[in-house]
Structures are given as structure tokens and as C-alpha cells.
Design a protein around this nucleic acid. Structure first.
Length: 471
DNA sequence: AAAAAAC
């Protein structure tokens, strides 16, 4: 691995990279950057989360003439959210070189996009359909494009974009650089490369080189009817910073996020049937941490890089084993740990074994969370907070004693004793733990009648929900 | 069969 500041990049890029907090290159970046700088065509086999966007973005922008005469680079992605994300990252990389990128995708007012194009971005990041639309309208000129990037190419092909991709590739000059990234390398991808690329350099990360983030993978065996309660309990016990819950269908996503909202969780849903404005808003809320739980179809399974996602729950077992790998990859980003829990009904166990083989990881069984687990879990969270407070106030002796007690965390009595030790003014009342205690301790958000939207406890705005409910 | 993607 090498350092970004030793590979001879221009100062404008180095500055941006350092501002983005990058230091060491990832394996794919280390191998891709020099080749792209040389102008070579590349086929890169890499999972998401390997630093792919920077791997092509940094050298592409480095060698780009920043004049505003024409579109210099075109990046094609399978989903709209991915287009937005990639464009944002490229914008950051190019910020001091005055290189701008613009996401172009469907569902957004086309006239507005045409106006944005007048700002003359050097890089366009788009989804195939809308790109084709602009090409036909002649509102995008690709005659000066020097670099084309096909991101998540396998995904685009399996979504039936072969023809669109071909049309786009025919529209750009033959003398150009083509970079193709794909998690898998089926024959269709190699065919495409054969026809549209020139002596491509093949970069494949050996399995051990692929950064497999520390993702703990497990499953719970549940009846369909239990799923919702089990999810709530897990959320209470684990208290994720941010979590993504994947559902099988759009309908299910709607029902699930409504039910979660109803129970007081900060949740929103996203799928392809929502208006693009809403999709954009939901993603923004989630990225900003305004919502803690994103309920999603596989629209959000691939490529999205959102920091702070500590947990992924597969509310439904993904049909496609590939999809499983992508879904769980939404957590454990940037080298941080993450946990993925898959809900499996008894009849789906066999399917899970198949997924296990594809994921090449053992998925361990986790017992269903009991009511007691929830209580203990919440006590532990409280303990963590108190321990932190204790640290600040330097009451080390208390801390030691409490930690000793914590070792035996099966015992709620001990926990409550530890709690008392650490509280400055210990409550004399015992902590009563009965089955009648509410499943959820968090206060539900309140509905602002006048404004017509929900407000969180911190009084921040919260968008209104759909009326239906099933869980 | 579902999901994604153009109007």
C-alpha cells in the first residue's frame, strides 16, 4: 500500500484528497491510478467499498483539462442514487481544479437538468435511460468525451441496459479511454469489453486483497409473523447508529417503514415507485442522520456508501445470492465493523446455505432476542453512557467496580447495582424489570398538527408517513 | 417473480 501524497499528484488534487481524509491507497487504487494516468483502458473487478470511485476519479481528474469547453468524461451507473453519490465524490476530488460533475438521471425535471448543463460541467454521471434521452434531444454533446466509465457494469447488463450502453458507447469518440468496473465477470461483460475497449488491462483483486470489511454475519430463524417484533427488539438491543432494513417488495417496504414509524422509530422507506424528489429527500435525511433506519428494496443494495451504517437487517432473505453480498456491503464501510442479520423462515434455511456458499462466509445462527435481552441490552446501553460520563469525571474507582460487575452481565440485579454505583446520586428505588415494561423505551415522535409533519425529540422536522399499516 | 431504468 502506498500513500496518496507520494504518488506525484498535482497540488490541487493532493489538497482535495487530504481534505477528504484519504491517506493510504487501497489495493485497487494503487493498481488502477498509474494505469489510468497512462491513459490505458481498464477492466476492474472490485466489490463496492474498495475505494473504486476514487480509484478512477483521482487519475481521471488529474489528467483532465479543466477548461469548460466540453464534457470530458462520462460515468454510467445502474441506479439514480449511485449516480448522485458518484457525482458528489467526483465533485469533491475536483473541487480545487474547478472540475465539476453533474448527475443526470430520470425522474428529475429535464428542463432543470438542461439548465444545469449550461454550467458546463466537465463530468456527467448518469443512468442509461436519461442519458439516452438527452442524447436524442441533443442536449448533451459527447463528441469531446475522453474517458468513459461503466460503473457496476454487471448490474447494468443484468438490468437489461446492454443496448443503451452500446448506443452510448457508439456516441462517444472512438479515440477515448474506457474504464469498466464490475463485481463479477460474466461472459457478457467480457464480450462488451472485447467490442468497445482497446487492449484493456485486467485488474482483479485476489480475494485476500479485497477489503472484506469486518462484517459479522448471522441469521435468526423466525416465523413470518414474528419478523416485525424481532426486528424491533433487535433495534432496541443493538441501537444502531444507522441501519438499513431490506425488504423483498416495494409494497412491503412501505408497510414496514410505516409500522416502524408508528412504533416511534425514526424510519423512512425508499423504492423505485416513489417520486424521485422523495427518493432524493429520503437519502438525504438518512445520510445526515436525520432518520436512523432506512427501509429499502434492492434499489439501495448496491454501491451506496453511507458512513455510520452499523447494521443491515435482511427482513426478507434476498432471492439472489449476489444481492445478499451487495446488501451486507452497505455496512462495515471505510474499514469500520458492521453487523448483518438475516431473517430466515424455517423453509428458507436451504436457500440460506446457498447464499453462504456464494458469500463464502459462514453465517451463524443467533438465538431470537428474548424480552429479557431487550432489557439487558438497554441497561448495557445506559451503562455505556454512564461509563463514558464516569471517564470524564475521573471517578475511576467507581468505574473499576462497575466494570467488574458488568462482566457478569447476565444478572440484571448486578447491572442495576452497577448503575447505582456510577450514578452520582444513586436512585434508592430499585430498577423494576417486569414483563409489563414497555417493549420500547424511546419516546415516539410527536405529530405537529399545524405543520402537518412529525417532529423528532430534538424538534427537527420529519416527513409525513403513508396512511396504510399492516404490522 | 421482484427489483432496477425514460417520457
Amino acid at each position: 500500500m502506498s500513500n496518496f501524497f507520494e504518488i506525484g499528484l498535482s497540488s490541487v488534487l493532493t489538497k482535495a484528497i487530504s481534505e477528504m481524509g484519504f491517506e493510504e491507497t487501497t489495493p485497487i487504487q494503487e493498481r488502477t491510478i498509474p494505469l489510468v494516468l497512462e491513459g490505458k483502458d481498464i477492466i476492474g473487478q472490485a466489490q463496492t467499498g474498495t475505494g473504486k470511485t476514487a480509484a478512477f476519479g483521482i487519475p481521471m481528474i488529474e489528467r483532465m483539462n479543466p477548461d469548460r469547453e466540453s464534457i470530458k468524461a462520462l460515468v454510467v451507473t445502474p441506479t439514480r442514487e449511485l449516480a448522485i453519490q458518484v457525482a458528489e465524490e467526483l465533485n469533491r476530488i475536483g473541487q480545487f481544479k474547478d472540475v465539476r460533475s453533474l448527475p443526470i438521471y430520470g425522474g428529475q425535471d429535464i428542463d432543470r437538468q438542461i439548465r444545469s448543463l449550461r454550467n458546463r460541467p466537465q463530468i456527467i454521471v448518469g443512468t442509461p435511460g436519461r442519458l439516452m434521452d438527452h442524447m436524442r434531444r441533443r442536449t448533451i454533446r459527447l463528441q469531446q468525451v475522453e474517458t468513459v466509465v461503466l460503473d457496476e457494469a454487471d448490474e447494468m447488463l443484468s438490468m437489461g441496459f446492454v443496448e443503451d450502453i452500446e448506443n452510448i458507447l457508439k456516441e462517444v469518440p472512438e479515440q477515448r479511454q474506457t474504464l469498466l468496473f464490475s463485481a463479477t465477470m460474466p461472459k457478457s461483460i467480457l464480450d462488451l469489453a472485447q467490442r468497445f475497449m482497446q487492449n484493456p488491462e485486467y485488474i482483479s483483486m485476489k480475494t485476500k486483497e479485497i477489503i472484506v470489511p469486518q462484517i459479522e454475519q448471522c441469521y435468526v430463524e423466525v416465523q413470518e409473523k414474528q419478523k416485525f417484533d424481532v426486528l424491533c427488539r433487535l433495534l432496541d438491543i443493538q441501537s444502531p447508529d444507522l441501519a438499513i432494513v431490506f425488504g423483498r417488495t416495494k409494497r412491503r417496504v412501505d408497510e414496514l417503514f410505516e409500522a416502524l414509524s408508528k412504533r416511534g422509530y425514526s424510519a423512512e422507506g425508499i423504492h423505485g415507485d416513489l417520486t424521485q424528489a422523495r427518493r432524493d429527500m429520503v437519502m438525504r435525511h438518512f445520510k445526515e442522520g436525520l432518520t436512523e433506519i432506512l427501509v429499502a428494496t434492492d434499489v439501495a443494495a448496491r454501491g451506496l456508501d453511507i458512513s455510520g451504517v452499523t447494521h443491515v437487517y435482511n427482513f426478507d432473505v434476498p432471492q439472489d445470492p449476489e444481492s445478499y453480498v451487495h446488501r451486507i456491503g452497505r455496512t462495515g464501510r471505510a474499514g469500520k465493523g458492521g453487523q448483518a442479520i438475516t431473517f430466515v423462515t424455517p423453509r428458507e434455511i436451504g436457500h440460506l446455505r446457498l447464499i453462504e456458499q456464494v458469500a463464502k462466509r459462514r453465517i451463524t445462527r443467533k438465538p431470537l432476542p428474548t424480552f429479557n435481552d431487550v432489557l439487558v441490552g438497554q441497561q448495557r446501553l445506559t451503562m455505556d453512557k454512564i461509563l463514558k460520563a464516569a471517564e470524564d469525571e475521573d471517578i475511576l474507582r467507581y468505574k473499576e467496580m462497575a466494570e467488574e460487575l458488568l462482566e457478569d452481565n447476565d444478572s440484571i440485579t448486578l447491572l442495576s447495582a452497577a448503575l447505582k454505583l456510577l450514578t452520582k446520586e444513586p436512585s434508592t428505588a430499585p430498577i423494576v424489570l417486569t414483563e409489563e415494561a414497555p417493549l420500547r423505551s424511546r419516546q415516539p415522535r410527536r405529530f405537529d398538527q399545524q405543520q402537518g409533519f412529525h417532529r423528532n425529540r430534538d424538534n427537527s422536522k420529519y416527513p409525513s408517513r403513508f396512511p396504510k399499516r399492516k404490522f
